[in-house]
């Protein structure tokens, strides 16, 4: 392999097809920026889910003396009933931790929540239910716990926040799906565009490649300059795309979204750094792959 020949062939190729090269760089830059944005949306959704997952718990409210309902036929929960409920929860494999909240504690929390209003004065502790707060091993798995304690005597009601947050999670799942779809479409579009650009480049140099074939240059030798050209353009494009991503995250998320919306933690430049090696590899690899596939079809022996 004559390195110098390949090198001069690439530089003349890049120079001669300057507009094409620029087009290639731009295509890759946009694709990588979109791909990166897709990845960031995914990880944002992941972060948001995690943030809320950590706060998910199941509340098992027990009967007080005013309770009605099937489980409260015997009036307020007895010590024996409470122990059964606790044991059921603690021995359940999906349960991580169990906290007990008595009526006094419930009243304190209640008072804090309605600090300014008058309700605090009307309600007394014995009107509030005592409860178990249950943290789960896996927030996705809550059905088992809920059904295990729901029917027990002394249990007035079981609520899980998962139900409240379900719409949020569904939305986030949707976001992830859309981001994933956009990423796939983007990759396909980029590969087609790169392939087309390389095909034009090959067409522009058909005289050279025709002669190369005639004098017995190997396919590898004929294709190598094109593939390396694509790799260089891919690298340049990826770098530009990643820079655009940093700027975008800094301006849109860092300056605008994160300071104003604080219900979760937001992606930042650290996440872009984490994605950078993958994006570089993807940009170079997809460019090379696209040109390789195109050339295989286009520069046959």
């Amino acid at each position: 392999m004559r390195f110098q020949y390949v090198l001069s062939e690439i530089t003349t190729g890049l120079r001669r097809n300057l507009t094409m090269t620029i087009a290639l760089v731009i295509v890759v830059a946009i694709s990588i920026a979109m791909l990166g944005a897709g990845l960031l949306i995914r990880s944002q959704a992941e972060t948001t889910k995690g943030y809320w997952y950590d706060r998910i718990e199941i509340s098992v409210f027990m009967c007080n003396e005013y309770s009605t309902g099937a489980g409260c036929a015997d009036g307020a929960v007895t010590d024996a009933q409470r122990d059964t409920i606790r044991q059921t929860l603690e021995s359940h494999p999906e349960v991580d931790e169990v906290f007990y909240e008595n009526q006094e504690q419930a009243f304190e929390r209640f008072s804090e929540q309605f600090d300014d209003s008058d309700i605090g004065g009307i309600i007394t502790p014995d009107q509030l239910p005592e409860s178990f707060r249950v943290a789960l091993q896996d927030p996705e798995q809550y059905d088992g716990v809920v059904s295990a304690v729901s029917g027990l005597p002394g249990v007035q009601e079981v609520t899980d926040q998962r139900q409240l947050l379900e719409p949020l999670f569904r939305t986030l799942d949707g976001f992830q799906l859309v981001a994933f779809a956009i990423t796939i479409i983007q990759i396909v579009a980029a590969v087609l565009l790169i392939g087309n650009t390389i095909r034009l480049a090959a067409f522009n140099r058909r005289r050279e490649t025709g002669i190369m074939r005639l004098v017995g240059a190997s396919n590898f030798y004929i294709q190598l300059p094109f593939i390396l050209e694509a790799a260089i353009a891919g690298l340049l494009g990826s770098v530009l795309g990643i820079i655009a991503l940093f700027v975008g995250v800094e301006l849109i998320v860092g300056r605008f979204i994160a300071p104003n919306l604080q219900f979760t933690s937001w992606v930042d430049s650290a996440d872009v750094w984490a994605a950078t090696p993958w994006l570089l590899v993807a940009g170079v690899l997809f460019s090379m792959l696209a040109s390789f596939v195109t050339l295989r079809r286009y520069l046959r022996v």
């Binding site: 005289r207 050279e208 025709g210 002669i211 074939r213 005639l214 004098v215 017995g216 240059a217 190997s218 396919n219 022996v301």
Partner: peptide, 18 residues
Amino acid sequence: VPHLRRRIGTVFQDFRLL
């Protein structure tokens, strides 16, 4: 095939020079 072609020289009516 390239190795075969290295053993064959070819000339055309239109010269095919760069």
